[in-house]
Design a protein around this nucleic acid. Structure first.
Lengths: 224, 224
DNA sequence: GGGTGGTGTTAAGGAAGCGTCAAGACCGGC
DNA sequence: GCCGGTCTTGACGCTTCCTTAACACCACCC
């Protein structure tokens, strides 16, 4: 039975979620603010967390960081419309998906199922290949044309983050946070330097990237 | 059987709707003012709400906000001719569509069917497809005819807002607030430029949009 | 038929973001 | 203490994107 924790301070939403989730055979627990939510998170060990961003006692991103400090349980964020900044910050902080209020129960349930499904086994192929190079995530090795490619630790971490999300756009903030740490989310310089390094070592034509693509203003994308 | 709640204070309209809807096998309940309407909404749990804006006891937007506090049941608004401001305000408050009085019963029935159809099958995966292009919301990726389509950050945000409300009329104010921020709600110029950009990149015939539709004076609508 | 409001289209200037290079700081091993 | 590799930092030119304005177009109404 899938366990869901809902953190929300609005009673009507809390009730609607409790009723609808229980009717679908989810095991539901609730909390009305961030402090109680973090405590419930540690106590209940739910399979997925539904988190409202508009909590009375702390920022939504603080709750997310508190959760992400020790578990990768999927987090679905509820946000009021127009809170573009909050939404982006929440996703950067580690949320998995978001739903804008007011939301349809069907939509939320669908995203819930998707989040649980994604979190389940994660078969994670340890070796990813392109036409020009191969990345072995478990052995931490990269080969190109049969020969090993030497990467520095930072280069490897950056490549690993990109390769673990094939085809997906990874934001600059996310890359910086994962490779350099949460305090470096504005040092876009680093990304430019190290993406250039990776391209020089991996791309057949570094000035015309085929695999490590730039999405101007947003981030980078690894195309297998 | 689809349940419809009609909130209207004019007896002739109420009767006409009751007769026509019942004849099409809808289950109809009615209320004559906002207070009774909100109570009926909670009691009956209809699949769709038809709401007249000219109620005696409260503003139409108040009713909409009351409903939107806990459910996203589709709302179709009836407004008298010339009440442009009320219509926009209603859509901003969360209504899904509107019909101007005097209206043809066929038109209302068509919009009713469309609203019910959209609400039923939830957007299961964060991937939305049309006949000509596919939008992957989680990977931030758009493909058309097998090839990737490159979007700028602003183009992407605008498309995302529209695609996340498929079939629904999204007002200019809401689009501007979500993409550019709350301070830009009068810069309708931006919308014209960027909607044109999206159409040029996504529509098979940009001068005759099939998916990104203009609702003159109101806003835009994404038709899947 | 001419005015009016809303929309579509286009282009140009300036702002912001990106790729590149190189010099200096830092840190390990020897 | 020296040395090689690695990371940080800054500067420059180039590309992309955003903003803004001007104009054409269309539907509608007087």
């Amino acid at each position: 039975m899938t366990k869901v924790l809902v953190i929300d301070d609005e009673a009507p939403i809390l009730n609607a979620l409790r009723i609808n989730l229980a009717a679908r055979q989810y095991e539901v627990s609730t909390a009305a603010d961030g402090t109680a939510g973090l405590a419930a998170m540690a106590r209940e060990r739910p399979d997925v967390l539904i988190l409202d961003l508009g909590l009375p006692d702390m920022e939504g991103t603080e709750v997310i960081k508190g959760v992400r400090g020790w578990t990768s349980t999927p987090i679905i964020v509820l946000s009021a419309w127009g809170q573009e900044g909050q939404k982006v910050a929440a996703l950067d902080a580690g949320a998995d998906d978001y739903v804008t209020k007011p939301f349809g129960m069907d939509e939320l349930l669908a995203r819930l199922r998707a989040a649980v499904r994604r979190a389940a086994p994660a078969p994670a192929e340890p070796v990813v290949s392109t036409g020009h190079f191969t990345v072995d995530l478990s052995a931490k090795r990269v080969t190109s044309g049969g020969a090993d490619v030497r990467l520095t630790p930072t280069e490897w971490q950056l490549l690993e983050v990109l390769v673990r999300h094939p085809g997906r756009l990874v934001t600059q903030r996310q890359l910086l946070a994962e490779v350099w740490g949460p305090g470096y989310q504005n040092e876009a310089n680093y990304l430019r330097v190290y993406v250039a390094n990776l391209r020089r070592k991996l791309e057949p034509d570094p000035s015309r990237p085929r695999y490590l693509l730039t999405e101007t203003g947003m981030g980078y994308r690894f195309r297998p």
